[in-house]
Design a protein around this nucleic acid. Structure first.
Length: 579
DNA sequence: GCCGTTTTCGGCCCGACTGTTTTCAGTCG
C-alpha cells in the first residue's frame, strides 16, 4: 500500500472542508457541518503535522480543540489511507461540481441542492446553460433577478476568484477612505475585516463609519467614482464592486456603537464567535451595536470598552484568529508585537552588481535616509546566471567595494553579504573559504524546486549545517497567487535553525511574505530568530519592510525575536555565535 | 459532531439585505 504518512495538514483540512460543504448541501445539521469546518481551521493553523501526532505515544489527536472521538478517528483514517470513506460516499451521492456552484455569489447550499434535484445541475457549466435558456426563473423561489445574478456571478468567479494582495488593495482602500471623509456629518471611519488584521491578501474591504446621516452615507458611498457596480444598498449597509475589481462593503452605525461594530466587523469570524460565547457565559449579549446586560447597553463606544466588558484586555486585530489570543489575553500573556519603528536595518537586498537596479551607494544612502543603522548587501551568486550572479572572484571584488564605501560613511554599516544558492545536493555554489570572509550569508533555493518533500528538506538542512550560513532566505519560495510553496517540512527546517543558530528570513516582498504567520509562531516557539528583510531590487523596494512587519505581527513576533531590531554591535554578536 | 464549576444531553453567535414573498427563506459576513 502507498505510504500516506507524510500527508499534509492542509490536505486533511481540505478533505474536511469538502465534507462540510457536501454535508451542508445534503441538508445535514448545521452544527455537524460547523464541526467539520472548525476542525478544518484548527488543522490548517497547526504547525505540527497531524501524521506525527497520530503516530505519537504521548500526544493525542483528541486533545486538539474541536477534535473529538469521531474526528480523531477520521484523521487517523486519512493519515493511514490518504482518504476518507465518508467523502467518497458523499461524492457518490452528490456531484462535486455543486461545490463550485455553491461558490457563486448569491447561491448557497440550499439553492445549489434544489438546482441539482429539480434541474439536474451538476456544475457551473450546466448552470450557465440553464440560466441562458431561462430555466432558472421558472423554479419556485427563484426569479429573473436571481437568474441574471447567477450569470453575472459565474463571470465574476471566472475573472477574479482570488484574493488580492494587500499591497494592491491599499491604494483603492485609501482612495475610498478619502472619498468618505468628505461626507458631511461623518464622525468616525475605519477599515475593518482582514485588511485591518493585516492579512497578506484581502478578499473584500469592510468599511465602517459612524455618522449622523446614515442614508446620506449610503448615497455618498455608492457615488464613489471607482464604483463599477452596486450590489446592495440598504439603510445601514451597502456593497459595491470597484474598478479594479474588489467588493467593498460599507456599514453605518451610531458613534455609541462604533467600538462594538469595529470589533464585530474586524473579525475573524472565529474570534468573533469565541468572544460572543465568552460574553454569553457572563450573561451578556455581544453584537455589532454593543455589549448588553438584558436590555441595558453597558459598552460599545470603543473596542477597548467592549473587550473589557467581556473581562479581557484589548487584543490587537492582527492576532484575532482564535488561535490562542483569547487564552493569552485572559492569562495576561499577549505578546508585545514588534513595530516598524523597532527595525534598525535591512538584511537582504540587491544592487546593480547583479539584478538590482540601483547602485551600492544609492541603496546605502536610501537605507540611511530611512533611519537604519546598517544593511547587508546580498547579491546573487553564479548559479543564478539569469541575474548575473557573482562567482568567487567577483564576489571578493564586490566586498572590497563595500569595505571602501563603509570607510566613507559615518554612523552606518554595510555588511558584506551574499545570497548564496543552495545546490540540488544542499551544498552551496560559492566556496567555503570565500564565504567565511563575508559578514552575512543568506542561503536560498532558486532552482530544481519540484523535488519531493523529503529531498527538499534534506537539501535545505544540509545547507543550514554549513557554518558560514547566517540565515535562510524566502524559505518556501512561494509567490502568493502565482506559485505554491515548495514541498518542504518547515518543522524540520525550524528545528534545524534552532540547532545551528541560523536565522529564518521573513521576506517582506508583498507577493512573497515568506515565511507565513504560522511559521513565524513556530520559529518563536523554538527560539529561532527571524530576519525581516525586503529583498529589495531597487531603492523603492526598501519600503516593503512594513509588509514584513505586518506579517511578523500576525505571527506573534516581539522585538526580541527579530535580529534586525538589534543595534550593530549586538547584531554582530549574534552573527559571531555561529560557526 | 463537539462540549461540559449548569458534563453524557441539549445546547451550539448574530443581524442586515435581497428576492420573491404576503410573512420569510436563503445568503452573506
Amino acid at each position: 500500500m502507498k505510504n500516506h504518512s507524510d500527508i499534509k495538514n492542509r490536505d486533511i483540512a481540505r478533505i474536511f472542508d469538502e465534507v462540510a460543504d457536501l454535508l451542508e448541501i445534503s441538508g445535514e445539521s448545521f452544527f455537524r457541518v460547523r464541526a467539520y469546518r472548525n476542525a478544518s481551521r484548527v488543522i490548517r493553523d497547526l504547525s505540527t503535522p497531524l501524521s506525527t501526532i497520530a503516530r505519537s505515544q504521548n500526544a493525542k489527536l483528541e486533545d486538539l480543540p474541536g477534535i473529538g472521538k469521531d474526528l480523531a478517528e477520521k484523521i487517523q483514517t486519512i493519515v493511514e489511507t490518504g482518504d476518507l470513506p465518508l467523502r467518497r460516499e458523499l461524492e457518490s451521492e452528490l456531484p462535486v461540481g455543486l461545490l463550485e456552484v455553491m461558490r457563486i455569489p448569491g447561491l448557497g447550499p440550499r439553492k445549489a441542492h434544489r438546482l441539482f434535484l429539480e434541474l439536474g445541475i451538476t456544475d457551473p457549466e450546466r448552470l450557465e446553460e440553464a440560466a441562458r435558456c431561462g430555466k432558472i426563473r421558472e423554479l419556485k423561489g427563484f426569479g429573473e433577478k436571481t437568474e441574471a445574478q447567477i450569470l453575472e456571478g459565474i463571470e465574476t468567479l471566472r475573472s477574479f476568484g482570488k484574493r488580492m494582495l494587500r499591497a494592491d488593495v491599499e491604494p483603492i482602500a485609501l482612495s475610498i477612505i478619502e472619498h468618505m471623509k468628505r461626507l458631511k456629518g461623518l464622525e468616525k471611519i475605519e477599515i475593518a475585516g482582514s485588511y485591518r488584521r493585516l492579512k497578506e491578501t484581502v478578499g473584500d474591504l469592510d468599511i465602517l463609519v459612524a455618522c449622523r446621516d446614515p442614508a446620506g452615507a449610503m448615497d455618498h458611498f455608492v457615488s464613489f467614482p471607482g464604483v463599477r457596480k452596486t450590489i446592495a444598498k440598504g439603510k445601514t449597509k451597502s456593497s459595491v464592486v470597484t474598478n479594479p475589481e474588489i467588493q467593498v462593503d460599507l456599514r453605518v452605525v451610531g458613534a455609541e456603537s462604533f467600538g462594538a461594530a469595529l470589533q464585530y466587523f474586524t473579525g475573524s469570524k472565529a474570534h468573533g464567535i469565541a468572544m460572543r460565547t465568552i460574553a454569553q457565559k457572563k450573561g451578556l449579549k455581544l453584537n455589532e451595536y454593543g455589549v448588553f446586560k438584558g436590555e441595558k447597553m453597558i459598552a460599545g463606544r470603543t473596542e477597548r470598552e467592549v473587550y473589557e466588558a467581556a473581562g479581557l484586555p484589548w487584543i490587537p486585530p492582527e492576532l484575532r484568529e482564535n488561535r490562542g489570543e483569547i487564552e493569552a489575553a485572559l492569562e495576561g500573556t499577549l505578546p508585545e508585537l514588534i513595530s516598524l519603528s523597532s527595525i534598525r536595518g535591512d538584511l537582504h537586498m540587491h544592487t546593480d552588481e547583479t539584478d538590482g537596479r540601483d547602485s551600492l551607494e544609492t541603496m546605502a544612502s536610501e537605507a540611511k535616509k530611512r533611519g537604519y543603522l546598517y544593511i547587508a548587501v546580498t547579491n546573487h551568486t553564479k548559479r543564478v546566471a539569469m541575474a548575473g550572479g557573482l562567482d568567487e572572484q567577483r564576489l571578493l571584488k564586490h566586498w572590497d567595494a563595500v569595505e571602501k564605501l563603509n570607510a566613507q560613511i559615518e554612523g552606518f554599516h554595510i555588511l558584506k553579504g551574499v545570497e548564496v544558492d543552495i545546490l540540488d545536493d544542499g551544498t552551496l555554489d560559492i566556496e567555503d573559504a570565500v564565504l567565511s570572509k563575508g559578514d552575512y550569508v543568506v542561503a536560498s533555493v532558486h532552482y530544481n524546486t519540484n523535488m519531493s518533500r523529503s529531498q527538499m528538506t534534506r537539501r535545505i538542512v544540509r545547507a543550514l549545517s554549513n557554518p558560514n550560513v547566517s540565515a535562510l532566505a524566502h524559505p518556501t519560495g512561494r509567490l502568493i497567487n502565482k506559485r505554491p510553496p515548495y514541498e518542504v517540512d518547515m518543522e524540520v527546517i525550524i528545528a534545524t535553525c534552532a540547532k545551528f543558530g541560523v536565522a529564518l528570513e521573513l521576506n517582506a516582498a508583498p507577493d512573497r511574505l515568506d515565511i507565513d504567520d504560522t511559521s513565524c509562531r513556530s520559529a518563536r516557539q523554538h527560539g529561532v530568530k527571524v530576519s525581516i528583510a525586503t529583498d529589495a531590487h531597487n531603492k523603492g523596494g526598501l519600503d516593503f519592510m512594513r509588509y514584513g512587519v505586518y506579517q511578523a505581527r500576525r505571527g506573534w513576533l516581539e522585538k526580541e525575536d527579530v535580529i534586525n531590531t538589534l543595534n550593530f554591535r549586538l547584531l554582530n554578536r549574534f552573527l559571531k555565535k555561529r560557526g
